[in-house]
Amino acid sequence: MKIGLYFGTFNPIHIGHLIIANHMAEHSDLDQIWMVVTPHNPHKKKKTLLDDHHRLHMVNLATESYPKIQASDIEFKLPQPNYTVHTLAHLQEKHPKYEFSLIMGEDNLNSLHKWKNYEVILQNHDIYVYPRLNSGEIEEHFINHPKIHRLGAPVIELSSTFIRNSIKDGKNVIPMLPNKVWEYMDHNLFYKK
Rank of each mutant, 00 (worst) to 15 (best):
M1I: 12
Y6D: 09
Y6A: 08
T9H: 12
F10Q: 02
P12Y: 07
H14C: 11
H14D: 14
I15L: 12
I15Y: 07
H17Y: 05
H17M: 08
I20P: 03
I20C: 04
A21V: 06
A21S: 06
N22E: 14
M24W: 05
A25M: 07
H27R: 08
H27F: 05
H27W: 00
S28Q: 07
D29N: 15
D31I: 02
D31M: 05
Q32Y: 12
I33F: 01
W34E: 04
M35Q: 05
V36K: 12
H43I: 11
K44I: 10
K44C: 02
K44E: 13
K45G: 10
L50P: 00
D52V: 03
H53W: 09
R55E: 01
H57P: 00
M58R: 02
V59K: 01
N60V: 09
A62P: 00
A62L: 08
T63A: 12
T63W: 06
Y66W: 03
Y66V: 07
Y66F: 15
I69Q: 05
I69N: 04
I69F: 09
I69C: 08
A71E: 04
I74V: 15
E75S: 12
L78Y: 11
L78S: 02
N82I: 14
N82T: 14
T84C: 07
V85S: 01
V85W: 00
T87R: 03
A89V: 02
H90P: 05
H90T: 05
L91V: 03
L91H: 03
E93M: 07
E93N: 14
E93G: 13
K94T: 13
H95W: 10
H95Y: 15
H95F: 13
H95C: 08
Y98K: 09
Y98S: 06
Y98L: 08
F100Y: 05
L102D: 04
I103D: 03
G105I: 11
G105F: 13
D107G: 05
N110I: 04
N110D: 06
S111E: 10
S111V: 12
S111M: 10
H113D: 13
I121D: 01
L122N: 06
L122G: 07
D126G: 07
D126Y: 10
D126L: 13
V129W: 00
Y130R: 09
P131I: 13
P131C: 01
P131N: 11
L133I: 12
S135E: 02
S135V: 01
E137D: 14
E137H: 09
E137C: 08
E139Y: 10
E140C: 09
E140R: 14
F142N: 04
N144L: 11
N144G: 13
H145L: 02
P146V: 00
P146R: 06
P146Y: 05
K147P: 06
I148R: 10
H149C: 04
L151T: 10
P154H: 03
E157H: 11
E157Y: 01
L158F: 06
L158I: 15
S159A: 09
S159Q: 07
T161R: 02
F162Y: 11
R164A: 03
N165T: 13
S166G: 10
I167A: 11
I167F: 06
D169M: 15
G170T: 05
N172P: 11
P175L: 13
M176Y: 15
M176W: 15
K180N: 11
K180C: 00
V181G: 04
E183W: 09
N188C: 04
L189K: 15
L189S: 08
F190S: 01
F190P: 00
Y191R: 01
K192Y: 00
